[in-house]
Amino acid sequence: MNSTPPVLGVPVKPEAPRGFTWKKKRNMFMFVFTVPTLLFFCLFMIYPIFHGLYFSFTDWSGGSETKNFIGFDNYKEMLNDPIIGTAIVNDYFLVFWKVIGIVGLGVLFAVVLTRFRLRGTVFFRSVFFIPNILSVVVIGVLWNYIYNPSIGFLNSFLSLFTSENVQTPWLGDTKLAIWMLLPPSIWAGIGFVMILVIAAILNIPKDLYEAASIDGAQEWQQFCRITMPLAWEQIKVSILWVVMTTLNGSFVIVWMMTEGGPDNSTQVMGSYLYQMGFRQYHFGYASAIGVLILILSLITTLALQRLMRRDVVELA
């Protein structure tokens, strides 16, 4: 850059070191940190989404070189497919009970571990958190053994109290199986929520609790009036986290434990997608299910955010 001599009387901006103005630096900074991320976001998120959308309008088997454009046929087919209905119901069943279970127990444990002066807090905290570092695959295998009708822990345990051996096939009963998926999923999720809420509670000034107890507030009242409102942000995040991971990720636990069976009674959208795409060679149809998952997760997340935003205004 040519540096012209300063003209008298005109105020000169002090030149930035090494030839960069502040603005340029800022722009460069933004470029450096946004463009690669954006690029990868496009490459690994946006592009596959649109590609999947395109597949969902075709009859591609997943293995052939050719595919035909069939318009909305896959979507029409979905309307007539009773398993899709089962899968959606199961998905929201899991969402509902997992939110209740994980967030409920997570908050409970967090409160217990912070507000009640217990011994061994660190120990419990780690114990509850351990399932979180286990892979879901491991959890699935582990619980498969617990539920095993012949040699499983659950039946052996129950047999202690009955005269005859208990042989309930927990995961083999079309009505029971979906309920049986809840304990492992809840067990696996509590730790994260607990840690999150513990952090939130520890951030609440002690004075509030002190003042409350001087005024005669019981633990329960303190929980309702102080802990809940002030930890609500974290609880909200937890709920959203559970909902999103369930809608997108319940596939793993289902696939590890039942593969959607018996008789499709534990099929969720993710597992049905896999079944259709990779076991029954309807990749186009599977893509359509993928689009359905995307749409439903978006709607659910947005609706939830709306719902909970109002709450936060009321409470905080």
Binding site: N148, S150, P169, D173
Partner: peptide, 8 residues
Amino acid sequence: IDPASAPI
């Protein structure tokens, strides 16, 4: 048939 068959 063993009822244990179904889920395993």
